[in-house]
Design a protein around this nucleic acid. Sequence first.
DNA 1: CGCACTAGACTTTTT
DNA 2: GTCTAGTGCG
Length: 641
Amino acid sequence: MDLSHLNKEQKHAVMEVKGPVMCIAGAGTGKTRVLTNRIAYLLSQGVSKCNIAAVTFTNKAATEMKERVASLVDIDASDMWISTFHSFGLRILREEIVQWRGYKKGFTVIDEEDSNKVMKKIIESFDIPKTDCITSKIFLTFVSMEKNKQYNQIVFDNDYQEEWYRKARKLYDAKLLAANAMDFDDLILNTIELLNDSEYVLKTYIEKFQYILIDEFQDTNLLQYELMTILCQKHKNIFIVGDQDQSIYSFRGAKIGNIDQFMKDYPDYKLIKIEENYRSTPEILKLANDVISKNTNRIDKNLFTSKDSKQKPLLTVCNTDNSEVEFIFKEILRLTGKGYNYSDIAIMYRSNYLSRNFESTFKRYKVPYTIYGGISYFARKEVKDILAYLKLAINFDDKFSFDRIINVPARKISKESTDKIFVESVRYDVSMFKAIDYIESNDVSKQCYESLRNFKNIIYGIKEFISNEKNDIKNVIDVILETTGYLKMLSSKKEENDQKLLNILELKNVIREAMYTYSGTVIEKLTQMLEDTVLKTDLDNLDDNDNKVKLMTYHQAKGLEFPIVFMMATEDGVFPNGFATNRFELEEERRICYVGITRAKERLFITCAKKRFMYGRVAFNKPSQFISNVSESLLERQVQM
DNA sequence: CGCACTAGACTTTTT
DNA sequence: GTCTAGTGCG
C-alpha cells in the first residue's frame, strides 16, 4: 500500500499496528487521514475487515471514515465495525440479546425526550408538593451520572431529594424494562454488563476485535473507555488518537483523565505526536499555541506549519453588538469582493443566542447564510410523530410510539382513557395497541370509543400499505399524512406549518435512501432505518457545499475548517462564559477558544463589543481574557471609531 | 380537551 | 428579550 503521501509521524502512526499506541494529533494535523490509512493498511496486511473496530463520536465522522477506507482499498466497507460508540454498543446488543435480564430481542432505544416523559410521569405519580429539587431534569442527570459511574458528581440537596430520587430511579429502570426499552446510556452500560454476564459473548468479541481504534479519545467518558478496555484485553492492539487541547465536552461526562488512565493501563504504550499542521497559516497557529499554553497539565505540543505567512489575526474592539455585526458584514462584503465565496466564511460564537443579531442584517444585505443549531432533524416533533405511526404499525408493542400519537392529531382520547387502556394491557399482558380491543363502549365516551376503533384502522391501514411490496414504499408518508388527519391539522395554520410539512416530506427521501442502504424485505429495511434514526441527529447529506455563510457555535465547528473565520462576542462573561468560574471550567473555555482559532485556514477575525444586549439588559463587557493576555506581537488590534 | 396566559430561565449537547 | 413549561379557565 502506498503511504508516500503521509509525513514521517503519520506513517509511523499508520504502521505501528501492534500493541497500545497513543497518538497525539493536534488540530489540522491529518488525524482522520491517519485513522483511515491505518485501517486501510491493516486490511492490506491481510487483516480481515471483521477483526477491526473503529469508534468515533458522530455519525458524520463514522460515515466519512467508512467512505474514505472504502476508497483507499476499494472494498465494501458498509458492514465494517466503524461507527459511533452508541451504534457500536447497539450492534452488539442487537446481535446478542435474545433474552437477557428481562430484555427481549427487538428492544427499542429511546431518546432524551422519551426518557424525560417517563421521569415526569414517575414524579407525578409520587403526588408530593412541587419543589425545585425534585424535577425530571435533575433526576435524569442523576440517573445518567449513576449509569456513567460518576458517583462523586452526584450531590443531593437534602435527604428528602435523595429519598425520592432513589424511588424514582427504581421505577425508571422498571418502566424501561417493562417497555423493553433502553436509553442512550444503556447502550454502552448494557454492552459492558452483557460482556460481564456472558462468558460466551465476551469470548466472541475479544477474539473478534484484534485491532481497535478510538477517535477523539479526549472526549471519551468512563464507560466508553471501560468498554474498549474490556474488548481489547486479549489482543491489546489499541490505537487512540486525540488532542487533549480539544476536549470541550466535559460537561457531557468526557474525561480527559482517560488519557492518564491509558498511560497507567498500558505502561508499554508507544507515543506518537503529530505536530505538523496542514490547515492554518503560521500567524494563526502562533496565536493558537500561545492561547492554549496557559492551560496546565498538558502534554506539551507545538503546532508548526510550512504554509506561507499571511496577515496576523485581527482583533477589533467594537462599540456595540450592532456595530460588531456591521463590521463583520463590511468585512464579508470586502472579502467576497476580493474573490472569496460566501461558503469560505464562518461566523462562530460561544452560545446560540448570539446568532440572533445577524438574521435581520443578513436579509438586509441579501447575503445567503445558514445558522446551525436549534433542534436537529430527527428530534423535531412533526418528524417524530410521523415516524411513531410507522413504528407502531411495524411493532404493536412499541409503547412509546403509542403514547406519542394515540391523541395526535387530537381525537378526543383523553389521558383517563389511555390510562384505562394501560390497565387492560397489564391485565391481559398484551400491548397497549391490542388492549384497545378490551375497552368496552361504556368504559369511555362515545367519541373516544369511535376514535379508538378508527385509530386501530389507521394503524392497520399503514401496516397493510407497507406489507404490500407492490407499493412505492416512500409514499407511506402520504398515507400517514392523509389517514391520520395530520395533513389536515397542519393545513389549519398554513404559514407556520409550511416548514413542518416540508420536514415531513423529507422523510420520503430518507425512506428512499434506506431502501438502498439496508437489505432484506421492505419491512426489514424500514425496521432497520427506524432503529437507526434514534441515534441520528441530522440528515447527513444536509451538510452542504452550498454558497452560504455558516454561523455556528464553537462546539458545532469542531472538526471543521474554513478559509475565513470570525470569532464574535469574544468578551469576558460571554466567552469565557459567565458560568465558568473555577480553574477547571476556565481551562475548558480556553480549549473551546483554541478549537475556534484552529478552525481558520487563512484569515482570523476576532471581535468584541464594549456594550451588548444580553437577556434584555445592557452589559458592559471587557475583551476576553483569552485574547487580551496574548503577547502584543501576535495580534493586529484596532478599535472601532 | 385545548387555548391563553404567566412565571422563570437563560452556556456548550458528538449519542 | 424570548422561549418554555406549567397552570387555569372556558
